[in-house]
Design a protein around this nucleic acid. Sequence first.
DNA 1: TGGCCTATGTATAACGA
DNA 2: TTCGTTATACATAGGCC
Lengths: 239, 239
Amino acid sequence: MTRKKVKLAFIVNDSARKATFKKRKKGLLKKVDELSTLCGIDACAIIYSPYDPQPEVWPSPLGVQQVLSKFRRMPEMEQSKKMVNQESFLRQRIAKSTEQLKKQTKENREKEMTQLMFQYLGEGNIMHNVNMLDLNDLAYLIDQYLKDINRRIELLTRESQSQSQPPMPPPPVVKDEVANVEEEGQGSHAQQGLNINMDSMQPKENWFVNLMSGANVDQPHVFGDANQQSGFWPNTFFH
Amino acid sequence: MTRKKVKLAFIVNDSARKATFKKRKKGLLKKVDELSTLCGIDACAIIYSPYDPQPEVWPSPLGVQQVLSKFRRMPEMEQSKKMVNQESFLRQRIAKSTEQLKKQTKENREKEMTQLMFQYLGEGNIMHNVNMLDLNDLAYLIDQYLKDINRRIELLTRESQSQSQPPMPPPPVVKDEVANVEEEGQGSHAQQGLNINMDSMQPKENWFVNLMSGANVDQPHVFGDANQQSGFWPNTFFH
DNA sequence: TGGCCTATGTATAACGA
DNA sequence: TTCGTTATACATAGGCC
């Protein structure tokens, strides 16, 4: 937990294990002591170690006996009910870690796709090594961007009109080529780093459809691996 | 323990106490889990709380039972032997604090006495408000200084003689007025800040005896308070 | 109430004497 | 081995939903 992130596993080196044991046992008892003091609760701890035939107990043999008798007095069934046991404890920890991993993965995926998009826009050519999952996510991402752009255009148009200027022709709405997408996007992803030059974008507005229409089927597209779970966007496309 | 150093005492506010309890209980169980994993030892914990009629146990009801049966199988006498109980735990903590306090007190005392000595040498007058304990320690300190001075003189004398110069009269050894002092001084205290002018010191060489011989009994000397423990030097004087 | 966040206090791994 | 020290990781009090 310091100098190096220790791997949570049995320490093979004997002396290191003993040293760690002593330190951590001390820290643990301090924690128990503090918890007991701060919250005024009964608690006890029993620790067996290979370094001593006697277990170490807290807060005292008598204190342990008292807590234990209270515990043993309880019917067996009651004891198992609502208890925190190792399984549920580990389950909680795993769930939390999984949650964090998911969050991070989503974030990574988003960055990946953004990079991919700008790479295409920059090089203006056909994309290599792009698989179906990437295309799904990319399509969604771009769709969000396009929607955001249209929203901005509309906003600007209304502002112009509210300033009582002569009516203008309808604005050049960027066409949303990806159809049947639910209207659930909040466009939050578009809020950062969207400094695209509209002029340079216009001629490419339907690049995605071209890409998908089979014009480049000879490219070595890698298609979806069943084991690969994107999970980045709602899986609503191509399924 | 964050944002503010929490006082280790019962938390009066109910909701705050409950929140702290939940957090700390979780942390505690994690610690127990880690200790168990890292060091491969059997351990269990039982925690009663006012928030649940059931105690929380670790690692599992079965695991607790196993550890407990191991524990109960032990003769009562054995249980109390070599155990870490609350009393010895606190005793250890107190011992450590006491040790630190002692060290600091000794250091302070030394500085006090040194200051007192130079104050006397500087003002060249009778000392007021000096009690017997101070005199004890001061005498010891000065004795150490004198011994160191004589040692230096002797060293210088020998150097002169080894240079084959005509024999000199015996050097003016500073007389050690404080008798029956064991020869255990290492003079370490004299190594720093001893820049006393020997000439100005000579006429005062027996100030301490004068002070003690009754010449100043009219001075309001405060004598030793039984409750006051100096503990600075070995208590070999005036006892 | 219950989770989440962040600034800070603690615990402790690694190392040196 | 057992201290003491130092650099880091972790735990968590107090806020804010």
